[in-house]
Design a protein around this nucleic acid. Structure first.
Lengths: 217, 217
DNA sequence: AATCTGAGTGAACGGTGTTTACTTTTTGAA
DNA sequence: TTCAAAAAGTAAACACCGTTCACTCAGATT
């Protein structure tokens, strides 16, 4: 029905309106988040009726999902770029942490929303095989690859499992990002508001994370 | 106006209704989160009118805030108990991580909501001096105390700043907790769903975090 | 006994996401 | 070129939401 790239005039027009909706939504979402993004106000902004939007997106969630995926693709690209560089492992690792956290802090609503899906109440549910193709899943794969290289190079402890280690790193980065986003003055809150720029703290955090994996010296 | 503990019959009655609201809200909140907690349905559940609730709480946010604070007080208590034990530093540190993450996973809606305040868009805002008296702030102080002891005992690198180190640990724990909450199958997602119980992964994560602070051996 | 205070209520206000029935425009074929 | 079918767009309604306001009424105070 909707081919990409669009070749017929109809498809081109449709694609254009779709993009219009997405870009208007993007700007609102970036500053006000998902809660602040109202279908009605969005429609008004682009001079369409609210119901028109539903001809392009099945629901608000679906619209927001595209924004989140596009955002995480940007993270994926930057991480991928760093990991693929021909520099020592520990530099790349530190670069990943700084970049990841930096992007998250730069677009806090995007980052927080990207993880704020529904909360699974009970124990572990069955595995989601589609996760690996998610932007998040791909970003994880890249991270894992880097860790594996660190192990193979002899920089990291050989008994480490790359997948587990990467998950731990990811969690640590996620935590710092979320702290920066949700605790306004992190890491400089009272009582001992440490004199350290947020970027320097990120470097400090990265250092601890990397140290945890390194060979005992 | 409302004394505590209540001594007059009127105060006792008021306190009772207040508790009724809170406990009904607590059960809904625990299973459905803040979004799923509707003042109207809550009122219906306890056989009051929606407006009645506003005689006890200024807003839904205020009501939810009490639930979150009570929850984080529980975290604080447990962490405090562990830190004050007379066991080696590394045991207490690992215990803190496991306990913290365990509570968060056990009450995911509470934990996520406790951090899901408004997102501060721009750079660092001015410090919030009241943070230190928050339950979160108190929990941090306890953690910091433990790290300081680890440094003084000679278990951790002496050049470390206890406050910074504690913040890094906190962030790492927060990250794991949030991952467990928001990525349903973490840490066992595709493609290499590692055969490791979530609790064991928490222990692994704790190990890496602790290692990052330890003396080079 | 009269008054006043405060608990509780019903109805409304302004907002939300979404659906339905409808009109208008565009398309593609006879 | 005409005409039916498909698609784009819309207005109005549905079912919610948090919150406020004017109001009643029971219980405590004077």
């Amino acid at each position: 029905m909707t081919a990409f790239p669009p070749n017929s005039p109809a498809e081109r027009r449709r694609h254009k309106v779709r993009s219009l909706i997405l870009s208007a939504a993007e700007s609102v979402f970036a500053s006000d988040g998902a809660e602040g993004l109202s279908i009605r106000r969005l429609a008004e902004k682009i001079d369409y009726s609210p119901s028109a939007i539903y001809k392009y997106f099945g629901s608000k969630d679906e619209l927001v999902f595209e924004l989140k995926e596009a955002f995480f693709e940007k993270i994926l690209e930057k991480i991928d770029y760093i990991v693929d560089q021909n520099t020592p492992y520990h530099l790349r690792a530190r670069g990943c942490v700084a970049t990841y956290v930096g992007i998250a802090v730069d677009k806090p609503h995007h980052y927080a929303a990207a993880f704020a899906g529904q909360i699974s109440d009970p124990g572990p549910t069955e595995d989601d095989p589609g996760f690996v193709e998610t932007k998040k899943g791909l970003a994880f794969s890249v991270l894992k690859k880097m860790v594996q290289e660190g192990i193979d190079d002899g920089h990291l402890r050989p008994e480490l499992n790359a997948s587990l280690a990467a998950k731990s790193i990811w969690a640590s980065c996620h935590g710092l990002a979320m702290m920066r986003i949700h605790v306004p003055t992190f890491p400089a809150f009272s009582p001992d508001k440490v004199v350290m720029a947020p970027e320097d703290f990120t470097a400090f955090h990265a250092d601890l994370v990397v140290r945890g994996l390194e060979l005992d010296s």
